[in-house]
């Protein structure tokens, strides 16, 4: 039951967007999201949405997949909308019933905020949909590496992320095995209230933690025996290279951001 999950939401495709340098993609994402907060009109959002559509079509990710990615934030979106619609005051009164009223200002701000959240989620998920966790890790490592001088262990953090990504499936598989073994002995993971269910997880979590520490111990030895000695002097199989398309994309993104911020 826990087996078939995939890490992240990366969709392998051969597209311009997929082949871009992960560092540039991360930088562009940060720029665009910052600019998103400067947009103060729906026409600005229209332009932003248009650029999102262009990226989606270039990336060959099915639109449906992106819409599905919005499901987890549906609750947040609805809540934002409801709160603004009913509680933000100002402007023409559109509807009234006793002391409850909907006013124009609330309606406008509600939809404005919801558009912002939706665009934010779509843009960030475009990054994770088109960039493998491995590339993301590499990109983050490079982008953080100037901070090494002030003591941020960028390479070590990236190593930790890689190891986490490597072991999540292994640990899930193991959790699945332990769960089945405990269920065969009559353990019940599915019924009862929250407190009871949480307590029932103990026979799953204890063996899982013990084994995870064991694995960590083994892995540390294995890494040491393969000459791991921190990030210093380490080279990489794949060196990141910024290409022409990356510069072009960065240029376009910069231009867009100026438009969003100044108009």
């Amino acid at each position: 039951m826990l087996r078939n999950i995939t890490i992240g939401q990366y969709m392998a495709r051969d597209s311009i967007i997929h082949n871009m340098d992960p560092r540039i993609k991360i930088v562009i994402t940060i720029m665009m999201i910052t600019a998103l907060f400067f947009i103060d009109s729906f026409s600005g959002y229209g332009l932003f949405f248009l650029s999102v559509l262009v990226i989606i079509s270039l990336s060959r990710i099915p639109l449906l997949r992106i819409i599905k990615g919005l499901r987890p934030v549906l609750f947040l979106v609805m809540l934002t909308l409801i709160l603004h619609v009913f509680f933000t005051r100002g402007g023409e009164v559109i509807w009234q019933w006793g002391f409850i009223s909907i006013e124009a200002e609330g309606l406008y701000t509600g939809f404005f905020m919801v558009t912002r959240i939706v665009l934010l989620i779509i843009f960030t998920s475009l990054l994770t949909l088109t960039t493998s966790p491995l590339e993301l890790t590499d990109g983050i490592e490079y982008l953080l590496s100037p901070l090494k001088r002030v003591g941020v262990p960028a390479s070590e953090l990236a190593m930790m992320m890689t190891i986490a990504l490597r072991f999540i499936p292994t640990l899930l598989e193991e959790a699945d095995k332990i769960m089945k073994a405990q269920m065969a002995r009559g353990a019940d993971f599915e019924s009862g209230n929250i407190v009871k269910r949480a307590r029932n997880l103990i026979p799953l979590l204890v063996p899982l933690f013990i084994s995870a520490f064991r694995r960590a111990d083994d892995l540390a030895l294995a890494m040491e025996s393969r000459c791991y000695h921190g990030g210093e002097g380490r080279t990489r199989l794949y060196e990141l290279k910024v290409k022409g398309t990356d510069f072009a994309a960065l240029g376009v993104a910069l231009l867009l951001c100026m438009v969003f911020i100044y108009f």
Binding site: P133, T162, R166, T170, R215, D218, A222
Partner: peptide, 8 residues
């Protein structure tokens, strides 16, 4: 399982 470090 406990000696492979990378995701590929």
């Amino acid at each position: 399982d406990n000696q492979l470090v990378a995701t590929r």
